[in-house]
Design a protein around this nucleic acid. Structure first.
Lengths: 222, 222
DNA sequence: CGTCGATTTTACCAAACGGTCAAGGCGATA
DNA sequence: TATCGCCTTGACCGTTTGGTAAAATCGACG
């Protein structure tokens, strides 16, 4: 998924100075990676406005002008981060198989989303921060590709409901519920740990188990 | 609920200059209110680090030095906001009645939380931002009063489960699920609107309905 | 091992930032 | 309406911020 790049208009098409080089070097690959990793750390906790280039540079272990040799601006780093995260982020929903068993599919989707909350909490928080400030960068992606994907999978869920295989819930709100509950364990980790108290070690496994029970059978005793 | 106030140590106990006055005036009440309202707007979208006093002052329609006559620092405004929000925020959970009917109680709780997401989205985002950056201010409150409240209500849910009135889910993860799904409609409003497409007018009512169905009966068809 | 492009650094800039200060304007009360 | 204390302001300060310019250094390759 490609983010629209306004640099393409009105410039020579070249980005940061490092991109004006004859070919991409080993050092460029390494340092760009270090910068993106550091930026993920900083942006995910301080948000776009609260993050500073100095801090990202410090976290990446290099000087600010050196960082700006690889990315022309704070904005460019932020966009690069979002851009390369998008695919990863939507992959689990893509995997929802219309031909599979509805309950296995939903359970597997919950499992994958909980794994992502556990393994990529900073990515989750980066997205959350972008959405919470009104999605100024991702707005078009949400209304375009994301909506399209949700619409597609909603049809699958509706078909399952029509076939009597699952309860006839609004599929979009069901998807929201899965997103919300799973990402909660990444975005609100501080709260989850505080409430669960010391340890809370198995919180992701426990969450996956509880959520699957909840989504399958709800609270009604059987 | 009172936030610890480190100003109390090492100072004369007086806060901003407006607090050194003989008694609280009408103008003080009005302007403090205007400032807190503006600060809520700014902090909830830009986060603590991203928010600036200038912007808050501008939003409140007054000069920066004038604002600083009522609050000594950015930090003090932020703490004041969180402090007066805490009670409001936890009230719905307090209302969960051990003597009520389990299903009515949970349904009512979901309804109240969705109402709050609809009516106080900025408050929701303010809290979310504080938690997402690791709860540096609210940490003690989460591990103290909040954990205590959750523990208390968890006992209620566990008792209901033991009596066979609801399914035996981990009560804390159930509470997390209710928090996550309801606050999602405030914190991720931009995404919800984008996915639902034009209108999305009835989204809060639809969400309340879908969530209650989901939490009651889950996906299993009956 | 010399060369030339790639990389890094030092020094710097203008604007924005959090916050202070002293002086002047205003409003409630007598 | 005069007074006194509350309120507001403009000017200012040191620091941080996003970003630039040019010189110095590095390193891959012939």
């Amino acid at each position: 998924m490609k983010l629209p790049d306004e640099r393409a208009i009105g410039t020579n098409g070249k980005g940061a100075r490092a991109e004006q080089t004859a070919r991409r070097t080993r050092i460029q690959a390494e340092n760009s990676e270090k910068i993106l990793a550091a930026a993920l750390e900083v942006f995910s906790t301080d948000g776009f406005r609260g993050a500073t280039i100095d801090r990202i540079a410090e976290t990446a272990g290099m000087s600010k002008p050196n960082l700006l040799y690889y990315f022309r601006s704070k904005d460019e780093i932020y966009r690069a981060l979002l851009d390369r995260l998008l695919e990863t982020w939507l992959q689990p929903l893509h995997g929802l198989d219309p031909d599979g068993d509805p309950f296995s599919e939903v359970a597997a989707y919950i499992d994958r989303k909980i794994e992502m909350a556990r393994d990529y909490p900073r990515e989750s928080r980066l997205f959350a921060g972008e959405i919470m400030r009104g999605a100024p960068i991702l707005g078009d992606v949400l209304a375009g590709p994301l909506k399209a994907l949700v619409d597609e999978k909603s049809k699958v869920l509706t078909a399952w409901a029509k076939a009597g295989k699952i309860a006839p819930l609004d599929p979009r709100h069901l998807i929201f519920a899965i997103w919300a509950t799973t990402q909660h364990y990444a975005d609100f980790d501080a709260q989850v740990r505080a409430v669960l108290g010391d340890g809370g070690e198995g919180r992701f496994a426990d969450a996956a188990y509880s959520l699957k029970r909840l989504f399958m059978d709800g609270l009604r005793p059987r």
